Simulated assay, not measured.
Amino acid sequence: LEQPLLGELTVTGVTPDSLRLSWTVAQGPFDSFMVQYKDAQGQPQAVPVAGDENEVTVPGLDPDRKYKMNLYGLRGRQRVGPESVVAKTAPQEDVDETPSPTELGTEAPESSEEPLLGELTVTGSSPDSLSLSWTVPQGRFDSFTVQYKDRDGRPQVVRIGGEESEVTVGGLEPGHKYKMHLYGLHEGQRVGPVSAVGVTAPQQEETPPATKPPLEPRLGELTVTDVTPNSVGLSG
């Protein structure tokens, strides 16, 4: 096998907290590579890289700081290198924490508003479901839950997304009264409940298919067929 040789190490990108490096291999394959450098406290750090790679991003660096990056190639027990390059991370970008007046006018009150639940209404019923809708007069909720008890008294929960304002609760019993409780969830806090009572529609009885009524019995014609002094013969 050829003696493996490292080529050139180059800095291909910088951010305030990382440096991107790439390199060439002049001769022979390597099993893996290692990038070594010292952090802001002078502690040695190492980033392992697979042998089929030829670039790496070194993260967790300090902004606007000069680093000397050393690349080693490893094959078996042999370590080749280092190839070195000195690079400087980008300066920290100043983030303007103060919102502009227009943002203050719209964003700030929105976030400080405590969300409120309005009214819960039953908008429809079938033998096995109830449709509910509700209003939110103030603020926004992350999600909602509808809670009720089934015919056996077991609590049931239906979860709804925060952008919804209506739901159909299925799997109910026909002709049964249910008390529905709506809760709103906002930043881990539960608001509510607002409640409404709904009655599912009665089960519709299936009407049997119509059958033809039986024919009314009707008499035919009666005829005298034979007469003797003491009898009369009749036929129908």
Score class of each variant (00 low, 15 high):
S131M: 05
R159Y: 13
T135H: 06
S165Q: 13
Q156T: 10
T168M: 15
P137Y: 07
E164D: 15
P155A: 09
T145K: 09
L130R: 00
S165F: 07
F141W: 05
E163K: 14
S131G: 09
V158G: 02
G162I: 01
S131K: 05
H176Y: 12
D142Q: 15
K177Q: 13
V146C: 01
K177W: 14
I160A: 03
W134R: 02
E166G: 10
G170N: 15
G162D: 01
L172S: 01
L172P: 00
V146I: 06
V158F: 05
G175F: 09
G153P: 04
F144Y: 10
P174F: 04
V169M: 08
Q138D: 14
T135W: 05
P137H: 06
G139A: 09
W134I: 01
K179Q: 13
T145W: 03
G170E: 11
L130E: 00
G171V: 04
L132K: 01
D152A: 12
W134F: 07
W134A: 01
G175Q: 11
K149E: 10
E163H: 10
S165G: 10
V158H: 05
P137C: 08
P137W: 08
R159H: 12
L172M: 07
W134T: 02
V169A: 05
E173A: 13
T145D: 08
V167H: 01
F141T: 02
Q147L: 06
G162V: 01
R151Q: 12
L172I: 03
P155Q: 08
D142L: 08
K177H: 11
W134N: 01
S131L: 06
P155M: 06
H176A: 12
L132H: 02
G175L: 11
V167Y: 02
P137A: 09
S143N: 15
L172E: 00
S165C: 08
D142T: 10
Y148C: 02
T135M: 04
P137Q: 11
S143T: 13
I160K: 01
G161N: 11
P137G: 06
